[in-house]
Every structure is written in C-alpha cells, then in structure tokens.
Design a binder for these strands. Structure first.
Lengths: 120, 120
DNA sequence: TGAATATATGAATATCTGTTCATATGTTAT
DNA sequence: ATAACATATGAACAGATATTCATATATTCA
C-alpha cells in the first residue's frame, strides 16, 4: 500500500506524462484564461446578445432598447452597465437621453463566428 | 390621465420610433440569438476554457486533464460532457482510456479573438 | 469470474447571476 | 424652484450552474 489512495489513483497519476508535460509548457497564463472566460461570460446571456445586435444597426437610447426588446428600463440599464464596463458599448449623452453604441471592432466577428458554429 | 402609467412612461413609448422600426426589421431571429447565447455560455467558464486550451496541443484522457489542471476526475468528466454535447470536443476510446480532442474548427479562432480584445 | 482501473452520472450543495422593486441622480422646461 | 422625464443603482429574490459525493458502468487482466 503506497501513500496514494487507491480510490482516487487517477487523480494523482499522469497516465501520459510526456503529453501532460508538453501541454503544460504551452498553456497560456492562468490569469489570461480566467479573464478570457469572464469576457465570454458577457456573451452568454441572451439579453446582452440581443442588445448588442440591436446596436449593430445604429445607436439607441435605453428606452428604445427596452421597447424594442420588450424589457424593463431597469433590466436594460443593468446590462448596459456590464457591457460598458467591459468596453463593448459606449455612451453619449444628449440632454436627458443617453445613446448607446458599439465600442469594439471584434464583437461583430466574434458573434458571426458563433453563428457559423450553430449552422454547421 | 391616459391609460399609460406616468411612472413607467418610458417603457411604453418609443423615443425614436423610426430607429426602433428599422432595427427591429434587421434583427436576427429570436431563437438564433438565444442559441447563440447558449453557445457562448460554454466559453464563459474558466474550467472549460482551460480544458479547451489543453486540447489545443494534443488529445488527452480525462485523468491527464484532471492532473494537468488540478481538478477532480468528476469535475472534468462533467465539463467534457457539456463540451461534447455542444460538439466542441470528441471522444475516442482506447481500452479503459478515453481520449478527448477538439472537434470544431471555429474554437481556435473564437478564443483568439477574445484574447485580442483583452490585449487591446 | 472477480479485482482493478478509467470514466460517467445523479443528487445535493453552495455560489453566482439576472431581474425586479424601490429609489436616487441628472437634465430640461415651465 | 419645481415638475417631468430618462437613466442609474443598491438590495432582495429566484433561477441557473459548477463542484462534490456517492455510486454506476465499462474495460482489462489475472
């Protein structure tokens, strides 16, 4: 009986040590992968996706978006805050109204690639 | 006093009717956008992102991945099931071992574009 | 056949996240 | 200054989700 528990043996042994060693060296930085997941999390919500698509055509104010997508003003505001914090949209004030528009050249390409995957 | 509540007036009026009408016509199908969000949800988890990056180099078995990423076998299995269900990875059995590898040509491009956004 | 190994899976739990509600902030017009 | 309007925000709540635990399945080997 070694120190390694029989029950979870697989947890502590590399079945293919050379493969694992090679992969480990080439893996990107841990923090980068974490940030990357956080970034994609933004696209993982249909409300935000719909807002982004709405803004593809032209800038819109909060109430336009709420009416267009049948959402409350509050819900839209909350989501816009997230999108803005992640530099996907930007805001411009005109009197009482605040217009939102896209602020990232990659967004369109990323979403298109997702669509491509869906229709394979 | 009209039927429209004063408090939520913005909810029921289009501030910019023409804009909203134009955008509504060009919006993609509602179901497509929902599926798209579901697809990106998969990338919104660092464990799954790490697994995908590990598989960029070469095929690996469940225990390799668990050891490499310091995760339990069970956690890896659960995530691989999700990745497989969404056709991002495929499995190949060799005796007791099951090797997983990437199964989508878009994954690499999508992740790269995410990285690009991060490093802007 | 039975023991050992590699992986899968259902249920429970804890955490995260989106929406709602109530309210605050900021701008315009009277 | 005050009312009306557009938007923002904090707290509470409900639903989703990743991990863990216990256990099942599948394959190999003695």
């Amino acid at each position: 009986m070694s120190e390694i528990s029989d029950i979870e043996k697989c947890e502590f042994l590399y079945l293919h040590e050379d493969a694992v060693r090679e992969v480990r060296e080439k893996m990107p930085d841990e923090n980068t992968l974490y940030d990357l997941a956080e970034f994609f999390k933004i696209f993982g919500d249909s409300t935000r996706i719909r807002i982004l698509y709405a803004l593809f055509e032209r800038e819109l104010c909060v109430c336009d978006i709420a009416g267009l997508l049948n959402l409350t003003q509050t819900a839209v505001s909350h989501q816009l805050r997230i999108l803005k914090a992640n530099k996907l949209v930007k805001a411009r004030r005109d009197g009482k109204t605040i217009f939102y528009s896209l602020d990232d050249k990659h967004v369109h390409d990323i979403l298109d690639m997702g669509i491509e995957h869906l229709f394979d």
